[in-house]
């Protein structure tokens, strides 16, 4: 399990990286945190002619707050996100989901951009980005464009990134008032990819549900937004019966596949159970029960 040979470049900035990407095109692969790509190299399931290592592009690692949103550079480490007070207060759903991403030693290297661009169907970050309508900033030969999460994740490990393009930033809306969040996951072992994970965010307005945001991972070829379930909540409120109805609807909205660890029916069932659990915990937080346990 040793990587095949490749040419290697470690550009010092995003601009240099883009230039290299332009030069080598489809022969090149971008190396972010390496927690997914290096295993693929070691298994020789990936054999790019050129590796462009982004780890020295220091201009891609930052966490910045703007009015109403937070911008994360693509090379921001998961570990930096985990321990960022800003993320904790402004993007608590991302903070909670981060605890489910691998282990501390893999989060040391793993990056937010790498996880999003890899688009593993069972990964947590794409579900968070999908739930929160993240904006993904993509830079390429024609300049910069902003892709909404709903249009970024296209299929199994496929994104809207075009040849010569790279993800440089992700923008997430900061926590609104009267909001609660929860990331629920079922996996076989701590740190594994999800069998099913649910990202939930609800914003209340007195007794009403002003908005609900739900997305699932592990339940289809890409992270899937559960809009039909959100609508049930936005229309009918956050009562127990309605939460159950939304959870049941969520299970109908997913298109999971079977593997060694879980059948289609079981995954669908877990979407139901975890959506309900996530909504209840999110609601509790929205109502001020901020001390809800991280994991139920």
């Amino acid at each position: 399990m040793k990587p095949p040979p490749f040419d290697y470049y470690a550009p010092a900035s995003a601009a240099e990286a883009l230039e290299l990407l332009g030069r080598y095109g489809a022969d090149a692969r971008l190396l972010a945190g390496g927690q997914s790509l290096v295993p693929l190299l070691n298994f020789r399931l990936s054999a790019p002619a050129v590796i462009i290592d982004l780890n020295r592009a220091t201009d891609l690692a930052y966490i910045k707050e703007e009015t109403g949103r937070v911008r994360l550079g693509a090379m921001t480490r998961q570990r930096a996100i985990e321990f960022s007070p800003l993320v904790k207060s402004r993007l608590p759903l991302l903070a909670e989901a981060t605890r489910w991403v691998g282990h501390l030693p893999t989060r040391t290297r793993g990056t937010v951009g790498g996880s999003l661009a890899h688009s593993d169907p069972a990964a947590e970050y794409p579900a968070v980005a999908t739930a929160l309508d993240a904006e993904l900033v993509v830079r390429g030969p024609a300049g910069e464009r902003v892709v909404p999460a709903a249009e970024f994740f296209l299929g199994l490990m496929t994104t809207a990134l075009q040849p010569g393009e790279m993800l440089v930033e992700v923008r997430l809306p900061a926590l609104a008032s009267n909001s609660g969040w929860a990331f629920e996951e079922f996996s076989r072992r701590h740190g594994d990819f999800a069998i099913v994970g649910i990202a939930a965010m609800v914003t209340t307005e007195r007794d009403r549900c002003r908005s609900a945001r739900l997305a699932a991972c592990g339940a289809g070829p890409v992270a899937v937004r559960l809009r039909g379930a959100e609508e049930i909540l936005e229309q009918g409120g956050l009562g127990d019966l309605n939460i159950n109805a939304a959870a049941a609807r969520a299970a109908e909205l997913v298109d999971p596949s079977a593997d060694l660890h879980a059948s289609v029916e079981y995954r669908r069932h877990l979407v139901h159970v975890l959506t309900r659990r996530a909504l209840k915990r999110a609601l509790e937080r929205a109502r001020g029960g901020g001390a809800a346990p991280l994991r139920s």
Partner: peptide, 10 residues
Amino acid sequence: ARSCLMLAVQ
């Protein structure tokens, strides 16, 4: 960090 998931050059 995992030293099997890093290149020496990194």
